[in-house]
Nucleic acid binder design. Structure first.
Lengths: 170, 170
DNA sequence: TATTGTTATACTCTATAACTATA
DNA sequence: TATAGTTATAGAGTATAACAATA
């Protein structure tokens, strides 16, 4: 999660992964106590922080990792579709892909019969990087799964998917 | 960064609530398919976007709403403890409380025997605002709950809490 | 005209560090 | 010295709109 390229870190401190601790029990959540939305947010933040800490030694970010995995899974995918898969606008992907391509992890290749698009694939080094990161992610995932009662795991993931996909935009 | 050109791009767009749609099923999630972390993130983003849309007509943000609820629940709480409750650094709360106080929703009162602290309470108007927002939040919550099988609800929330509180920082 | 990807730009959120004033 | 809150600042992350190239 360090900078994608070497960058002078002037007066700035190391951007440590931070998680504000709510250790002391000197407040009441009250109405939030059983709110799904509230705890969904807290859980996501905790999981995200834990993952960032885990891969903290590797100079790559979560969004970059997601791109590596999905390109590996969908070789030849273009940036617009990749954006949909990650849930980000295509313009947000440009700097990510720029970086990954610049580091030789991803290959962008113009598609012959539609020269507007790039087909994205992983280089051999990109595959190695993805594999390394996947090992970390797998360990992280095991850690998460330990917090879920085994008989509830399937249902838990299914519920998350349902929320992500069919929650109406209101 | 190089602002070499003279042509001004367009000025500020309206900060609309956006959710990139992943409608077309023209990609495979592959390895992410059953990852808790991945879907936790997507679910949280969807829920957050839905909530923002719901209260979109009211000039207040999620962090502000959280502050209102928690101050209402813990009258006299100070900013540092409030920050722990929300999971944010105290410095992040200063502008939020500035705004809420400026709008007459929250009252900051120096504590007599420790003049470093403020005791935070809701004004009558703050309570009204909180109540209005809570109605929206309650509707949002009902919507979320409809996506959870009723017999799994308790367990679902419990799991989220467990992830948020006892996930080791690695 | 529509689409892909890029660029310019702006904005939200949040943390860190240094600071003031208290304790 | 330690703590509560503020200020200044940095920077990650991401969107929107306009654009060029191509369809």
């Amino acid at each position: 999660m360090a900078a994608s390229s070497t960058k002078p870190r002037s007066p700035a401190p190391a951007p440590a992964v931070h998680r504000a601790e709510a250790s002391a029990d000197d407040y009441r959540l009250g109405w939030f106590e059983n709110m799904v939305g509230f705890h969904l947010r807290r859980a996501q933040e905790a999981a995200f922080a834990a993952f960032k800490n885990r891969v903290g030694g590797i100079d790559i970010r979560v969004g970059h990792f997601a791109a590596l995995v999905l390109i590996g899974e969908n070789p030849g995918i273009n940036q617009t579709v990749l954006g949909r898969a990650i849930g980000r606008d295509k313009s947000s992907l440009t700097p990510i892909l720029d970086d990954l391509a610049h580091r030789g992890l991803v290959v962008r290749q113009r598609i012959v019969h539609d020269r507007r698009r790039y087909g994205l694939t992983l280089s051999a080094e990109g595959e190695r990087m993805r594999d390394t990161l996947q090992e970390h992610a797998q360990a992280h995932e095991r850690q998460l799964q330990q917090l879920i009662e085994p008989e509830c795991y399937e249902q838990f993931v299914r519920t998350l998917k349902r929320i992500a996909t069919i929650l109406p935009p209101v």
